[in-house]
Design a protein around this nucleic acid. Sequence first.
DNA 1: ACGAAATGCGCCACCGGTGTCGCAGTTGAT
DNA 2: ATCAACTGCGACACCGGTGGCGCATTTCGT
Lengths: 193, 193
Amino acid sequence: MDADAAPRRVRADAERSTARILEAAEAVLAEDPTAPLERIADAAGLARATVHRRFSSRAALLDALAAQLAQRYVQGLAEARVDTAPPVDAMLRMTETAFALKLAHRFAVQLTASMTPEVQGGLDRLFARLREAGAITAPDPTWGRRVYLALLHEVNDLPADSPMLDGDDLAARAGLLVGTVLRALGGVWPPAR
Amino acid sequence: MDADAAPRRVRADAERSTARILEAAEAVLAEDPTAPLERIADAAGLARATVHRRFSSRAALLDALAAQLAQRYVQGLAEARVDTAPPVDAMLRMTETAFALKLAHRFAVQLTASMTPEVQGGLDRLFARLREAGAITAPDPTWGRRVYLALLHEVNDLPADSPMLDGDDLAARAGLLVGTVLRALGGVWPPAR
DNA sequence: ACGAAATGCGCCACCGGTGTCGCAGTTGAT
DNA sequence: ATCAACTGCGACACCGGTGGCGCATTTCGT
């Protein structure tokens, strides 16, 4: 919502600052969603005034951040081929990328703005496909999405030495989450054969 | 932490104000955990200064509230006989009382202070007993507790007209939650017979 | 090398929420 | 009925965070 679509050209310099600010904001706000702008500025190695120059207000910064995150999720959804691949595979892939974005998670969802209708829709379609494929029995995709998101945070917060985890890699967490969600929604996991 | 154990007597009047404040705080903060004291005072029909007279600071009020809530949970745990009754029954009862306290939920847990070690312990013992009884297979009670709490909020937020609910009564929500959690943790629900 | 543009820095105004005080009026205990 | 205690109200100081300048300095584009 700021510093884009330029009739007047933006200096390469400035554009880098913008990126650094977003990066710093992501890191700082992940730990404390109410952190003052000054802390973000410090983390970015910039003066607070400069942050104000790039983003007219705190709200504008949050918006930009939310948009950026939403876009990453959309991309993740696409790369996981949620609409075409076997749904369980897609879910596993999507989940791994979600954990890779973990820094942002806690506030990414609290920041409901980042739960774009587009992202929601993608997830809902995924749960609908899971049901069609017989991987779950719960009929309501919305409910599936809610359960998934709620447990996503829980698994993300799980300490690395939890007995529920084999190692701390993404795959272990993704496996735990997917299994838990599928079972919760009436599926069988691991699949009986 | 305020206005109790009196060497000097407290007027009945004042005690009622305290109660009204706590009541109002619970209601207001459930909707907006960061609501200013003034909003609470208004809801209680009192002046902000009066709130300050009963509770020396915002933190003190929050503490008192957390203590009150924790105590209710402990009582709920006891009444559900989590340590003696058949664990699934206990879980069902506990869950219903938890929903009865729903107004407070969202911030009750965010207010980690109210998640007393006592409450945590009670839940952990419940999940250990569930495992012993074969109702779940997940070995780690902590994980069970986390899943339970996370989904508790989700079910609580579920709109009354959700396809997942038969009516909006406590029993429907409790059933959905218990079933989902037991399945998520590797149990069978509804029980095959 | 030059000008345009972005930066750092300090300063100030503003806002919302918190906490304190005193005073006048009301309510409760005995 | 009387006194003590509590209340409502308004005013005030304080604090942290936000947002806006202006100016001297650095950095980028060409």
